[in-house]
Every structure is written in structure tokens, then in C-alpha cells.
């Protein structure tokens, strides 16, 4: 089960911060989340939203293993 984390405005939009979701690829995970919540699905693909797998920012699709931490990072506010 991948551990999915949402931050900032994405967490408010979704109404959750953390979930475990079984998915072999990031693209499949995105599709599952969009199927459940179309508004969230669109926001996850929105401008400036980055994805980190185990705390490393990735671009495009990537395989997930049972313990991958998937973090969706909306545009950062700075401190």
C-alpha cells in the first residue's frame, strides 16, 4: 500500500491528509483518486503541483512499491 500525503490547499480540498492506497504506478494512483473525487484529481494535475516519491521530486510516471510515500506538493508559500 502506498502512503499518500497531501499538503496545504490540497489537503483542505480533499478533506484528508494521509491515506493508504494500493497502486502499482503513480499514473494508476492518480486515476483512482480522480475517479473518487474529480475536483481533487484535477487539482493534483494543476499548475505547480509537484510529486515526491519517498521525499524525492519526480516528473512523469513511476512505479510504486508497497511502502512508497507519495506526497503531492502544491505551490509552496515560503516561510
Amino acid at each position: 500500500m502506498a502512503r499518500v500525503l497531501l499538503f496545504g490547499p490540497l489537503r483542505d480540498l480533499a478533506g484528508w491528509r494521509e491515506r493508504e492506497i494500493d497502486s502499482p504506478f503513480l499514473s494508476v494512483l492518480r486515476a483512482r483518486l480522480a475517479e473518487e473525487d474529480a475536483v481533487l484529481g484535477a487539482a493534483l494535475g494543476g499548475p505547480g503541483v509537484q510529486v515526491a516519491l519517498d521525499q524525492v521530486v519526480v516528473r512523469g510516471d513511476a512505479p510504486l512499491n508497497a511502502r512508497t510515500e507519495v506526497a503531492f506538493l502544491p505551490p509552496m508559500s515560503g516561510g
Partner: peptide
């Protein structure tokens, strides 16, 4: 760097409600 790029998400709470803050053009 910290004001414009550091990985923080900042929300202001006030009498008119709450809002997420993004870096300004000046930042």
C-alpha cells in the same frame, strides 16, 4: 530563498476567515 521557494504552506486566519498565502511578485 526561504521567502519564495522553501517547502512551507502558509495559511492566514483572521476575522474574515482563512486563506492560503503564496509568495508575492516582490518575493
Amino acid at each position: 530563498y526561504l521567502k519564495s521557494r522553501a517547502p512551507f504552506w502558509k495559511k492566514e486566519h483572521g476575522p474574515d476567515g482563512e486563506r492560503w498565502i503564496e509568495p508575492t511578485a516582490q518575493d
